[in-house]
Amino acid sequence: MLALEKNEFLAGINERKEYLEAMGFVSVNVYPYEEVPLNENYTMVKTRGRMAIKKQDGQVVALVHDATYVLFLKEDRPKMVFALSHEDPMKMMQDQGLT
Results as ranks from 00 to 15, higher is better:
Y42A: 10
G58F: 03
R77F: 09
M44Q: 09
G49I: 00
I53T: 02
P89D: 00
M44D: 01
P32Y: 02
E87N: 05
R77S: 11
P32M: 03
E75W: 07
M80L: 05
K74Y: 11
A3W: 09
Y33V: 08
T68Y: 05
D66P: 00
H86Q: 05
L98C: 05
Q94P: 10
A22E: 00
M80G: 08
L38N: 02
E35F: 13
E35M: 15
A52V: 11
K46Q: 07
R48I: 15
D66Y: 10
A83M: 08
Y42S: 02
N29C: 10
N14R: 15
F72Y: 06
H86P: 08
E87W: 01
T68M: 10
F82K: 09
E8I: 12
R16I: 13
G58C: 11
M44A: 14
E40T: 11
F25R: 01
L71A: 04
D57I: 07
S85G: 06
A62Y: 13
D66W: 02
V61M: 05
E8R: 05
K79N: 09
T43D: 03
N41K: 11
A3H: 06
G97N: 03
T99C: 12
Q96M: 05
Y69Q: 01
V70K: 03
A62L: 15
V61C: 01
D95V: 08
L10S: 11
M80E: 00
Q94W: 13
D76V: 03
Y42W: 04
G49D: 00
K54E: 02
Q56E: 10
D57C: 07
N29K: 15
L38M: 09
M1R: 02
E34K: 15
S85F: 02
V61I: 14
N39W: 00
P37V: 01
A62H: 11
K54C: 03
E40W: 07
E40A: 12
E87V: 12
K91H: 08
M90R: 09
L84Y: 11
T43K: 13
D76P: 09
A52T: 10
T99M: 11
V70W: 01
M51Y: 08
T99N: 07
V60R: 06
E15I: 13
A83C: 15
L98D: 00
L84P: 03
L38Y: 01
E34Y: 14
V61K: 02
L73G: 07
K55E: 03
D57K: 05
K91Y: 07
P37L: 01
M93W: 05
V26G: 07
Y42K: 13
F25E: 00
K74S: 14
F72W: 06
D95W: 04
G12T: 07
T68L: 10
V45I: 07
D88W: 02
G12H: 02
P89L: 04
A3E: 04
A11F: 14
G24T: 00
L38I: 02
T99V: 12
H65R: 08
F25V: 03
M51P: 10
A3S: 09
D76M: 07
K6A: 14
G12N: 05
L84C: 13
F82R: 08
N29T: 14
E5G: 15
A11L: 11
Q96Y: 05
Q94N: 10
N7F: 15
V70I: 15
M44L: 14
M90D: 02
V28K: 04
V64G: 08
F72M: 05
L10G: 04
P89T: 00
Y42T: 03
G12I: 09
K74L: 12
M23V: 05
V26A: 06
D95K: 10
